[in-house]
Structures are given as C-alpha cells and as structure tokens.
Amino acid sequence: MLKIDNIYKTFNPGTITEKVALRGVSLHLKPGDFVTVIGGNGAGKSTLMNSIAGTFKVDKGSIVIDGEDITKWGEHKRAKYIGRVFQDPMMGTAANMQIEENLAIASRRGRMPTLSWSSPAAQREVFREQLKSLNLGLEDRLESKVGLLSGGQRQALTLLMATLVEPKLLLLDEHTAALDPKTAAQVLALTNDIVNSRKLTTLMITHNMKDALSCGNRLIMLHDGKILIDVSGEEKKHLTIRDLLAMFEKAAGSELNSDALLLS
C-alpha cells in the first residue's frame, strides 16, 4: 500500500543549523498493516511522517501509495489518499467552525469543493451516527463550535474526520501525547477500534513503548534518521520493553538514552 524507497531529508543544508533528519529510509507497508513508530528525540519520526504527508518534499528517494508515485505531489493533493491526526489537538480541526461544518469538510477530502451548500441536512444523520460511536455525547452538539471542545474531544473528532472518507493510509503523529493519561487511553482505544475494525493501513508515532508494543502488527524504531529495528507478526506479539532495549543496544552499539522513551 505504501512504498517508501531510500528517502533522504536534510534541513537547512549548507548552514550552521544543518540537520540531517532522514538518511535512507525504506519502508514497505502491506494493506491493513498497523505500524507503530518509536525513537528518541531527533530520530526522524516526525520528519518521516511529514515527508509522507507532503509537508515538505524529500531530497532523494520515492514515496508510492497504492501504485501511484506521490513524491512530487503537494500536501493538499496527497490528502486524497492520506488521513492525518496531529500531535497538537488544535491542528486537526477548525475552532471557529461548527462540529458539523468540520465533518462536512472532512467528508469531501480528496475532491474539489463545489458551489453546492456545504452542510446539507442529508448528511446530518450520518454525522450523528458517526459521532455517537465516539461515546462523547457530541452527537447532540452538531452546531457547537469546535473551539468549545476539550483536547481529547477534538482529537477524537479529528480521528473521525481523518477516517470519514476511508484513507489509503492513516498517519497518527503522537496524537495522544498532548492529552492527560486517562483521555490518552480513551483516544488510543478509539484508534485501535477504528483501525482494526476497518483494517486501515496505519502509521502511528508514539512516545510510549508500551503502546507501541500493544498496538498494531508491526513496530519500527528510528534512530539517527534510519530504521534501526523492524519487527512484526509473532515476533512483535511476544516482544517486551526489555527485549526492545536489548535489541537497541545491539543494533546501535550504545545504550538508549532517551528519557522520554524510557520513562513512559
């Protein structure tokens, strides 16, 4: 479904702040793969995500989704195939607009907007049904401004919006990191529900090793702009945090020293 071949990305090349973020990353995802991505700060997780989403173009290499080469496509064009949830709960929704208006926009992802009315009454029942499945009581608040919702509610809504039109690839960029632990667990459960029930091909960055192990069928660990560890299937099922640390030491030749990863 997703074929990334040997991509490179350097920020601010030739300057004092030059940062090589990706050095030859290749990753092939089969349809229905749910891949969790971990790695310390600066390992290249978000760069990988943004390269796929098209926030910037990669320096070298290619990105292919479902047989179509999207390497040179702009961000908005790639949205046809890609659903996204950001780390910042404010980023995925338009605060000044109603829940209904946000959903209406998401329901058109990937097609040109027209001059027909944006929030037709016909869609209302569908939205209500979909919101009900979130169990947040949002189905009765279709006309509320999204800005009135909590971070967790906004993240759940963004998740719903990203999957309203079935994406060929779902990108989750530490989408629970900014939430309190209880809300984070709820949003993660919802994520598992949606991804597993609809067999969505998904790439999820997380800071939490436990989540990375418990979710999905494959785990990759980035280090210094490269994929260091890649486990899947049965092997991943039986993997523990201790195993993961041992694998890291063996592969990287040094101890893992990312507090963020170890403490969570």
């Binding site: 949205a79 995925g92 605060a95 058109r108 992802r109």
Partner: peptide, 14 residues
Amino acid sequence: ATGCNQHMIRANGI
C-alpha cells in the same frame, strides 16, 4: 477554514 486553520484544511485536500 483556511482563515481558521491552514493545517486542517490542507490535510483535508484544499
């Protein structure tokens, strides 16, 4: 939506 949140509207294909 563009005036409100450019990230959101680009992620939705605009």
